[in-house]
C-alpha cells in the first residue's frame, strides 16, 4: 500500500492491455447492472402503467405496496423460508458432508444420491413435490394405506403451513450442493490437524465444532452467499408447486414483482417492489461486507 503512493503517476498505465481488454465488461456492468438498477429505481417513483412514463408521484407506489396484504404475506413467507432454509441447509449440508468425510464405504454412491436433486430444475422439483405432498397421491395416502387411517399430512392445502411444504422441496433440492461444497472444504483440512487433535485427546464432535468449522470460514461464506441468493430469488419453485396458493398464502416477493409488472400492467408498482427487494439485500449485505472487509484491515 505504501509503495503505491510513489508510483502513482504510472499506475494508470500499468497492465494497459489488460485494462483495455476489460473495458467492455466494465461498460456492460455499468450500463446493464448499475444503469438498469438506477432506471428501475427512478421509474418506481412514477405512475407508469404498461409503458414507462416519467410522471412522478413521489412515494405513492411504496405506500400502496406496504398497505397491500399480498406484499406483506410475501415478505413474511420470504422471512420464514429464508430463516429456516438458511439454518437447515447449512446444518444438513454440513452434517452429511461430515458423515461422508468419515471415510465410509460407498461414499461415491451417497454423494451422487445427495447431489442428484440439484441437477433437477426448480420447476421439476416443484411438480414432483406437489405430487408427493398431494393427500390423495403422496405421503398421506401411503401412510394411510399402511394402516394408520387417521394420519393427516396435507401442507399444500393449508394456508398456515403451506410455506413449509415449499421449504421441504427447497431443502431437498438445495442441500446436496452445500454438502459438496462443505465436503470440499473438509477435504482441504490438513490431516495433521486431526492427528494433533487426537494426540490432545479432543473428541471428534468437539474437534469439528471448535477446530474444523472455524478453519472452514471461507467455505461457509461461499455457502452462505449461495443460499442467500437462492432465497431472495425464489420464484419458479413456488410457481410450479403452489402458484402462490391456496389463495395468496404462499406468495413470494419475486412473484409479486413479475405479476404486477406484466399481468397487472403496472410497471411502477412492480419496480417499487423490486426496489424494496434490492434494499433488503443491501441492508443484509452492508453490515456483512463491513465485518468481512473492514475487519480484515484492522486485523
Amino acid at each position: 500500500m505504501s509503495s503505491s503512493k510513489a508510483r502513482k503517476p504510472s499506475g494508470l498505465f500499468r497492465n494497459l492491455s489488460a485494462k483495455i481488454a476489460s473495458v467492455p465488461m466494465v461498460l456492460t456492468a455499468l450500463v446493464v447492472f448499475v444503469g438498469g438498477t438506477a432506471w428501475t429505481v427512478v421509474y418506481s417513483f412514477t405512475s407508469s402503467k404498461l409503458l414507462p412514463k416519467l410522471n412522478f408521484v413521489g412515494l405513492d407506489q411504496y405506500e400502496r405496496l406496504w398497505s397491500t396484504r399480498r406484499w406483506l404475506i410475501s415478505i413474511e413467507n420470504l422471512a420464514i423460508y429464508g430463516f429456516f432454509s438458511m439454518i437447515f441447509t447449512l446444518l444438513i449440508g454440513f452434517t452429511l458432508a461430515a458423515l461422508l468425510d468419515r471415510k465410509i464405504r460407498g461414499e461415491n454412491v451417497f454423494r451422487t444420491i445427495f447431489l442428484y436433486p440439484f441437477a433437477l430444475s426448480f420447476v421439476v422439483t416443484g411438480l414432483a413435490w406437489q405430487w408427493i405432498l398431494n393427500p390423495d397421491l403422496g405421503v398421506q395416502n401411503v401412510v394411510r394405506s399402511m394402516g394408520w387411517e387417521s394420519f393427516a399430512f396435507n401442507p399444500l392445502n393449508d394456508p398456515d403451513i403451506v410455506i413449509y411444504g415449499i421449504l421441504i422441496a427447497g431443502l431437498w433440492q438445495g442441500t446436496g450442493l452445500i454438502m459438496v461444497i462443505m465436503l470440499a472444504g473438509l477435504r482441504g483440512i490438513d490431516e495433521d490437524i486431526w492427528k494433533a487433535a487426537r494426540v490432545d485427546g479432543i473428541g471428534t464432535i468437539k474437534t469439528y465444532v471448535r477446530v474444523i468449522i472455524p478453519m472452514m470460514r471461507p467455505v461457509f461464506v461461499t455457502a452462505l452467499v449461495l443460499i442467500a441468493s437462492g432465497i431472495i430469488k425464489i420464484y419458479d419453485l413456488v410457481v410450479a408447486q403452489t402458484n402462490g396458493g391456496p389463495g395468496i398464502a404462499s406468495e413470494v416477493p419475486a412473484k409479486y414483482v413479475i405479476n404486477y409488472m406484466f399481468r397487472a400492467q403496472n410497471l411502477a408498482q412492480g419496480f417499487a417492489a423490486s426496489t424494496m427487494m434490492l434494499v433488503s439485500v443491501i441492508i443484509i449485505l452492508i453490515p456483512w461486507a463491513y465485518l468481512e472487509f473492514g475487519g480484515k484491515k484492522r486485523g
Binding site: 397491500t68 396484504r69 396458493g245 389463495g247 397487472a264
Partner: peptide
C-alpha cells in the same frame, strides 16, 4: 391493475 388487486383479494377471501 385493479383486476389483479381484486383477484388477490378474492384468492385470499375464498381460502
Amino acid at each position: 391493475d385493479t383486476q389483479t388487486q381484486i383477484e388477490d383479494l378474492m384468492a385470499e377471501f375464498w381460502t
